[in-house]
């Protein structure tokens, strides 16, 4: 039955080569912790992706209750945290996952750096990876404001003042993020849009490119 469905689809869109590209490859010994435990350092990239998936899923559920306006934002987070079934777990995963994903990304970057894996021919994938790092930091910065508590408000105020000191583009950048003369209603709406639409869109594109390049070039060889 399954086989005949597969054959029906395969006959029309030729799935087999796509499947081969995604999953049909060998994992070499030097990156496999089952052979050498020290090869666990090669797991940080996969762990980053794993936590990114958790972030996307938990974030999708958070937006079902979160209200991005200054009157209700803080109350909606408190409601989600204290009243909604499993809300404390979903928000907890998103909150701690945000830190964990930075840690994993950092360790992955260090692994790639110290094994010299960014050298020819993988220069472009290193650049894509560093861009992913910047997008993640942007997600962290914008997500921090969304609960709209004092800690978030004053940290964002300082962050935007720092952005304003950048020569030439600073005032423009500050205005773009802040959306008005003060950190207020429009800032929260913008940070929500950036956190939920702009940066995740950029992140998914960059991640896709990162993986295509890995599959194209293969994992770097043993040292």
């Amino acid at each position: 039955m399954l086989k005949s469905i597969y054959n029906w689809v395969d006959e029309r869109i030729n799935v087999t080569p796509m499947w081969r590209d995604i999953a049909d490859h060998e994992v070499p010994e030097h990156v496999n912790p089952a052979h050498h435990f020290s090869a666990f350092v090669y797991c940080f990239g996969g762990l980053t992706f794993f936590i990114t998936v958790i972030q996307i899923l938990s974030g999708m559920f958070l937006t079902m209750y979160y209200v991005p306006d200054i009157i209700n934002a803080n109350a909606s987070v408190k409601y989600l945290q204290n009243e909604v079934a499993f809300g404390v777990i979903v928000r907890g995963m998103h909150h701690w996952g945000a830190s964990l994903v930075i840690v994993m990304l950092f360790l992955h970057t260090l692994r790639v750096f110290f094994t010299g894996a960014y050298k020819k021919p993988r220069e472009l994938n290193w650049v894509v990876g560093v861009l992913i790092f910047f997008v993640m930091l942007g997600l962290g910065f914008t997500g921090y404001l969304l609960p709209w508590d004092n800690k978030a408000y004053f940290a964002t105020k300082v962050g935007l003042e720092i952005a304003n000191t950048v020569p030439l583009i600073g005032p423009f950048l500050g205005q773009l993020l802040q959306g008005g003369d003060i950190v207020g209603a429009q800032t929260l709406a913008r940070f929500f849009a950036i956190h939920v639409f702009f940066l995740p869109g950029a992140l998914l594109g960059l991640l896709g490119l990162h993986f295509v390049l890995i599959r194209k070039q293969g994992i770097s060889g043993p040292l």
Binding site: N74, Q81, I89, W96, P147, D149, A152, I182, V183, G184
Partner: peptide
């Protein structure tokens, strides 16, 4: 971890 350490939430922002 998430169950033993719930995510913190402070009071509403007061400029």
């Amino acid at each position: 971890l998430t169950i033993s350490h719930p995510a913190p939430i402070g009071d509403q922002a007061d400029p």
